[in-house]
Amino acid sequence: MPLTFTFDPAVTPDLRDGILDLWADVSNAGGAVGFVPPVTREDIRPSLVQHFASMAEGRVRFLVGHDEEGRVVATAFLTRNTHHLMTHWLWLNTVMVHPRHQGKGYGRDLLAAAAGAARGLDGIEAIRLSCRGGIGLERFYESCGYKEVGRIPAAIRVAPGDDRDDVIMLLSLA
């Protein structure tokens, strides 16, 4: 069953709690979304509050996917550049699909919905994202049309002695 995507939904307590649950579940399943397991909702809350503050300032837009039961099961945040020479592309971050829904094509659906949302924004010609190397994410993003345009070796320290590359990917919207 397909997900229902909403761009810039109203932030309600239910939505906030759904995002916190999703983010914790994805992180604890080993997802590369800014944390390493074990993590709790309270560990994640400050990062979500930062996202919400950036949304209130108009710098970040939000895409959420709900399953047939209305649960938050996918997210992506679209962040505009503030540098005047880089306003023609935006960042896609905190891209998540709940582990129980992975392998169903929902990640592709989320990225397609994010590209559609970005195409609707004035002046946006490309989407950039970065992902943690070493777990196959770059192959997934490439299969969705993104190209690897840079790599910073050992930039992400997952644990002492476990450094991963920061892989920079780009999707042209032209």
Rank of each mutant, 00 (worst) to 15 (best):
T75N: 03
W91K: 01
P38V: 13
R139C: 00
V11L: 14
R128I: 14
Q50I: 14
T40P: 07
S172V: 01
E68I: 09
V95K: 01
Q50P: 05
I44T: 10
R108Y: 05
A114P: 03
A118E: 04
A113S: 11
D14K: 02
T40D: 06
E138L: 04
G34M: 07
F7H: 13
T4K: 12
F35Q: 05
A29L: 10
G58S: 08
R16W: 01
N93G: 13
M86Q: 13
Q50L: 14
L171R: 11
G161M: 03
M96H: 06
P38L: 11
P160I: 00
F52T: 02
I19T: 04
G31L: 05
I156H: 06
S172M: 03
S54K: 13
G65F: 03
F140Q: 00
G103R: 08
G30A: 07
R71M: 09
L137H: 13
A126R: 13
H101Q: 10
V64E: 03
T6V: 15
F62D: 01
F77L: 06
G103A: 11
L171P: 11
F140L: 02
R139P: 04
L48Q: 14
C144F: 02
L20K: 06
T87E: 06
M1D: 12
D122P: 13
I156P: 10
I135E: 09
D14E: 10
R100K: 14
K147L: 12
R151F: 12
P9W: 00
F52R: 01
Q50N: 14
M1I: 09
V36E: 05
L63T: 00
N28A: 11
H84W: 06
V64L: 10
D14T: 07
S27C: 14
I44R: 05
T82I: 13
Y146W: 15
R61Q: 14
N81H: 05
G70K: 00
T94C: 02
T6M: 03
S130L: 02
M169I: 09
Y146H: 02
M55P: 02
H51E: 07
D8Y: 02
D67E: 12
P9N: 07
L170Q: 13
T82C: 03
T75I: 02
R59D: 09
G31E: 04
V167N: 04
L90W: 01
R80N: 01
A10Q: 09
V149D: 05
A117W: 00
P9F: 01
Y146D: 03
D109T: 06
D67N: 15
A126W: 07
G58E: 09
M86A: 14
A10F: 00
A159E: 08
G105S: 10
L22S: 15
V36L: 03
L173R: 08
V60F: 04
T12R: 01
R132M: 13
G103T: 11
L78A: 03
S27T: 15
Y106W: 10
F35M: 04
L171Y: 04
R128A: 12
L129M: 12
A74F: 05
L20R: 11
V26A: 13
